Each structure stands twice: as C-alpha cells, then as structure tokens.
Amino acid sequence: MAERQTALVVCPGRGTYGKAELGYLKRLHSDKSELIANFDALRAEGGQPTLSELDGAERFSPALHTRGDIASPLIFAAAYADFLAIDREQFDIAAVTGNSMGWYTTLACAGAASAENGFRIVDAMGEYSQSGEPGGQVLLTLVDEDWNEIADLRAQILALLATIDARPAHALHPSIDLGGMLVVAGNEAGLEAVLKEASPTPARDPLRLVNHGPFHTPLMQGSSIRALALPAEWLHAPTIPMIDGRGHIWRPFVSPRETLRRYTFGTQILEPYDFTRAIQVAVKEYAPNRIILLGPGDTLGGAIAQALIAIQWRGLGSKADFQAMQAADPVLLAMGREDQRALATG
C-alpha cells in the first residue's frame, strides 16, 4: 500500500451553493441518507424547510437558495458530507481551516463539535444573519491578471474605507482578506459609497455580494449576543488541528472550551476574518502534500491559489505557475469538480 499523503482540508463559506450545485446532496451523497435525515429532522423541529426539499427543488431560486438561513445549512451539509467522503487510506488529515461561515464547518470536521451540533450552530447563525443586522458586503480585487497584488492598492482601499466610515450615517469596515481580494462590509450608505468610489482593477470591478450581511464587523453585535447564548457544551477541544480567521492554531486536547466559544461567537463574528493568513499559516506549519477544498462549488480555489502565490509557496509566482502545477500534478483538489473529486475520494 502506498504511503498516505498529508492533506489540509479547507471548508467553503457562503456563496458556494449556486445553480450548478442544486441537487449536490442527492447526486453525490445518497450513501449518507442517515446523516441528511438527521439534519432534516433538526430543520423540521424548527418548522424550516428540510435540506432534502431545498436540495431537491425543481429549479434553483436565487431569492431563496442564497438566503442565509437556507444557503448556510445547505453548504454545511454538503461540505461535511464531502469531508466524510475523503479517502482516509490515501490521506491523513493534517489540519482543517475554512473561510468565514466555513469556520463552523471546520469545527465539525476537526471534531470540536459533533456533526449535529455543528449543524445547529450554522443553522442558528444563518437565521441570525438573515433576520438580523441590515447591510452587506462588497468584493474588491487587489491583484492583477497574473494574481500578484497591485502595489499600494490595498493601502489606498483601506484609506478609502476609513474616509467613508468617518462620514455621518456611513459604516464601512474590512470584512474578509480573501487571497487576492478584500471583502468589505457596511451599511447601505457605506456600500453605495465604496461601489461608486473604489477604483476598478484589471481583474474585476467592485461587486456587491447577493444576500450577504455585514459579516465580521461590529455591525454584527446583535448576532454575536444571540450566539453567545447558545449552549457552551456544543463546543470542545478539536481532535484535528484547526486554523481560525486570525491564523491561530487550535490544537487537540489543549484548546479550552470557553476560549473557543468566545472566539467563535464573539471575535470571529465581530472582527475581520483573514482567510489568506489562515491558508498561509496552515501550509507553513503542516506542509501538506495536498489541499482538499470541500464542496459545494470550487470558487474558493482562486483565493487559495492567490494566498499561496503571495508567499511563493513551492516557487509559485503567478497564475500561470499555479495552472501549470495543477496540470502536471494537482496540489489543490476541489471536491466540487468532478475530475478533482475523484482524486480525493479514491
């Protein structure tokens, strides 16, 4: 038997369950009917549409399927089921990380929460975000077409955010550092201002994210207060190392429950999430042979590649370098892609 490879597992955030992913659970995880049934039962207890109903809908509805209380549990269930499908005879999971909402999936994959309690957490947070604070997110690109960061652009954007945030009735904050992109969040006045005033870049114009709240900013205070009332016993030390949105490593057996609870339901909700740093810390600390991106979707792949290019991991210096590496011997395996999924599941 070949020696097992080490793998870093990455859990996706919001925005990854789209039209192409409709039916993901039914198509790819019919063997996990008991797991999905348990999640369905938890949804039914709260009078919510079940995952089976939502995933099995005749057509994708942007107005419905992108809602926080709908998208979040669908993404969690798909990602966690993908995690269970990884071939453990081929891969030894060295660590787990995730982007934004993916932190809650990370908790379950890394053993810091049971599958059911992880689902309860993400279901609750999806509901809080959908019914809670007004506002949203805008995606700004920091890199050129070669996926290298444009000199001084980050400083210019941060200065613009501070200027807009200082205006009366405006709120605007950094939200997520996402590889070669920066997600900013604020109230409607702040978002309108940044969409008008941010400079376009060669890669992409500023983009308003549909049905996203002002995540990872002080505007989420109400959601944090509600989350801190969730049962503390839902969380405990992980069994697999996990890297959070600061690049901090939570290690097995030595991660206090209360500290993890305060981070998950306080710091993580109210302060910027640095996914770039999480990826960079993970590959430096654990030197994985492969990076496995859980589904649904594969849109996070570019951000992962850009985070790696920024530190010249394995000599990567550009988008072309990354594409060449993937063509020769793919390091990043996106389970939302049929060809790469087969490499992760055996």
Rank of each mutant, 00 (worst) to 15 (best):
A2Y: 07
R4K: 15
R4Y: 02
Q5N: 02
L8K: 06
C11I: 10
P12W: 13
R14Y: 11
G15Y: 10
G18L: 14
L28H: 15
L28M: 10
D31S: 14
F39Y: 12
L42W: 07
A44L: 13
G46Q: 13
G46C: 07
L51I: 01
R59Q: 13
F60R: 07
S61Y: 04
L64N: 02
T66Y: 14
A71I: 05
I75Y: 10
A77Q: 02
D82V: 08
D82G: 04
E89V: 00
Q90W: 03
F91N: 02
A94P: 08
G98M: 07
N99M: 12
T106G: 02
A108E: 05
G111K: 07
A113T: 08
A113D: 09
I121H: 06
A124Q: 12
S129R: 08
Q130Y: 11
S131T: 14
L140Y: 06
T141H: 12
L142C: 05
L142P: 07
W147P: 01
E149Q: 14
A151V: 13
R154V: 01
I157K: 09
L160W: 12
A162Y: 06
I164C: 04
H170M: 13
L172N: 01
I176F: 04
L178Q: 01
G179A: 10
G179K: 01
V184N: 04
V184M: 11
G186S: 11
N187P: 08
E192A: 15
A193Q: 06
V194P: 06
S199R: 14
S199N: 08
P200C: 02
P200Y: 05
P200R: 08
P206T: 13
L207T: 15
L209N: 03
L209G: 04
V210E: 11
P218W: 10
Q221N: 08
Q221I: 11
S223E: 15
E233S: 11
E233L: 03
L235G: 05
P238N: 08
G247D: 01
S255Q: 10
S255H: 01
Y263L: 11
Q268M: 15
Q268I: 01
Q280Y: 03
V281Y: 04
V281W: 09
V283N: 03
E285N: 07
A287E: 11
P288F: 09
I291K: 07
I291H: 04
L293D: 06
P296F: 08
P296H: 11
A307F: 05
R314N: 13
G315N: 08
S318I: 03
A320S: 14
Q323C: 05
Q323G: 11
A324F: 03
A328N: 14
L333G: 05
